[in-house]
Design a protein around this nucleic acid. Structure first.
Lengths: 347, 347
DNA sequence: GGAAATAATGTAAACGTTTACATTTCTGGT
DNA sequence: ACCAGAAATGTAAACGTTTACATTATTTCC
């Protein structure tokens, strides 16, 4: 039961061209007629049909945001940052999430084609390289934390390597030597980067990271919890646990306490991402700070730059630095403590 | 640089009608020609233009989801449930969030018009009644936790009243009498419902709720934290604190500990929503369980029923019950304890 | 007052589909 | 071999806009 431009034109006694001009604000149309038309528009509650508009204009005023399965606060913070940024430009966000395997992403991508003016893709799986290869090159695309050898796309990457290295260094400086990690899924490139950073921190000091205390999680609280249960089967309990996101750190903390250990006095724990939650749990969580909403915001900004041709030329590769948010979940190790549990795993 | 149906038709040596028929799977077209066409489609990577399609078909295969500002895990869980449900039907979700004031919602609504086949609206502000009144009645709309006197729309409401009442009862049964609440924004109808439930639990027992220990938060961790700081300025510290969502409960816990009190032995704390986080923090949080992803799922199901005309007739008003997830953050009050702090505020 | 310039408005094509209806091509029965 | 009927394919209108270009109305200037 919607009116179209013809209805408006008839009721106002003008041509559809005039109505169109009024609607689009542009051009010179007599104030008198403009007001007349606007009155009719108002009365009829006329809203231009976006399909018809999109068909001829070839733009939709929407930006597509492709996310993997969303757990925890991370992705909603991304959405928040992105949505705020698009709205300031009168654009809108089309979010498609909850797909991890390339097949689903492809379906989502097909859906997006023609419905959005630009695309922000977050596909952290290693095997999505192929997929990323044949992303539509007809629209601006920004890759968020994706690995690709294709230099054609703008990318934004957080420094997972540097962040993990810094955190590991921090723990080493506190005197920890047996630092277990709980990683994300093996096929997740962010997790890979963080693992690389973790290991590098050791090797830089001439130590060798102990691969037997690297546990694979999947970024959920439960996987953090379960990994710790595994950790406690070890002969020598590590003195610190580095979870590769905050959710797993929280799961880890629960498990550690169930085993009767205190944090940080018995075991230090830290996370990654520094989600809003981190500073509120107890002990407040030491974490690698990632500017999450800003990530979404930056991606949107980039996309608008492309859209408005402010930025032409080669793809940009933005590297977002991380920092340490040091709180109360990690503690300098007591020599006494170590002696009870230390194992000679480094020279 | 995209091909259209005409390109495909030409390359395949058939008419566009035939191509269309092949694309849409329907109708009788010779297997031979079908394969021929499909081959061309494949080669040209042809994807039908959704605008053109939407224009003539008047459907978009997208469902709009309108959310308020998203904080914490609640809304991302809603999205998760909804997205999973739409994907199983080959549909997609257009999420628009981060707007609280009616003006913004209206803009989002205008944007949605013509872009979606149905709408799910979550607008928990009291003053959005007007807005809800002139929601498009040309499409199926499901209202999620919205108050409206308009019986025209399908609604899904969680039983905030019942949940809060039950939780308050539980606390009263544990012997608590001074139960502070930290509410959401005053203008939030869910918060109002919960408050009503809280008060009712008292009055049912012939007690009168102490309004001076009702604190207004805004569903963020920080507001929970700050409310507790206020609470500790009181002469008589309540023995229990009931936060109207889990995020605020977490903020509250932090503040309580900073004041040197233990949970639950000194003060009991409970939340609302039972987000995934709740069972992992420590002490694990007693909370009113709300089936969050299921809420999104139900809304989508309802919308599809309408879309496929399986459900005609009057609007349905679904009432989603809540339940108590009892964990370790609340404790039976010791008589000794109360005596130290009790105030005669009920008969 | 009237030509020239300018401003306002109108006309019609185009965007890329779907589908009712028209046409062509097959099939099988005589 | 031919025809009826069925099956496959094609033609063209329709969906609701925008906009180049054409037309008409208004102003400006002598």
């Amino acid at each position: 039961m919607h009116f179209n431009i013809i209805d408006v034109a008839e009721k106002a006694g003008v041509s559809i061209a005039t109505v169109s001009r009024v609607i689009n604000g542009s051009d010179k149309v007599r104030t008198e007629t403009r007001e007349l038309v606007m009155a009719v528009v108002e009365k009829l509650q006329y809203v231009p049909n976006p399909s018809a508009r999109g068909l001829i204009l070839k733009r939709t005023e929407a930006i597509g945001l492709l996310l993997p399965d969303l757990h925890g606060e991370f992705f909603s913070e991304i959405i928040r940052g992105a949505d705020n940024a698009v709205q300031s430009q009168g654009y809108h966000l089309i979010v498609s999430s909850s797909h991890n395997d390339p097949k689903e992403i492809e379906a989502a991508l097909r859906f997006m084609r023609g419905r959005v003016d630009a695309l922000i893709v977050m596909s952290p799986r290693v095997d999505s390289e192929i997929l990323l290869a044949n992303l539509p090159k007809s629209l601006p695309v920004v890759l968020l934390n994706c690995r690709t050898s294709n230099p054609h796309f703008d990318t934004i990457m957080t420094d997972g390597f540097g962040g993990a290295k810094e955190m590991t260094n921090y723990l080493l400086d506190l005197g920890h030597k047996q630092i277990a990690v709980i990683t994300g899924s093996q096929s997740n490139i962010e997790s890979q980067e963080r693992l690389r950073g973790y290991r590098t921190a050791f090797t830089i000091r001439g130590m060798v990271p102990n691969k037997s205390i690297e546990f694979e999680g999947n970024f959920t609280q439960m996987s953090g919890y379960e990994s710790v249960k595994e950790i406690f089967k070890l002969k020598n309990i590590p003195t610190a646990i580095f979870a590769f996101n905050d959710s797993m750190a929280i799961g880890a903390i629960k498990a550690i306490r169930e085993e009767g250990y205190k944090i940080p006095s018995d075991i230090s724990v830290c996370g990654f991402d520094d989600t809003p939650m981190a500073k509120y749990i107890s002990p407040s969580l030491t974490s690698v700070h990632v500017p999450i909403p800003e990530l979404g915001e930056m991606a949107i900004k980039r996309v608008f730059d492309r859209l408005q041709k402010r930025t032409k030329g080669a793809a940009a590769h933005i590297f977002v630095p991380t920092s340490l948010s040091i709180r109360n979940s990690c503690k300098k190790i007591m020599d006494v403590d170590i002696s009870k549990r230390e194992e000679v795993f480094n020279k």
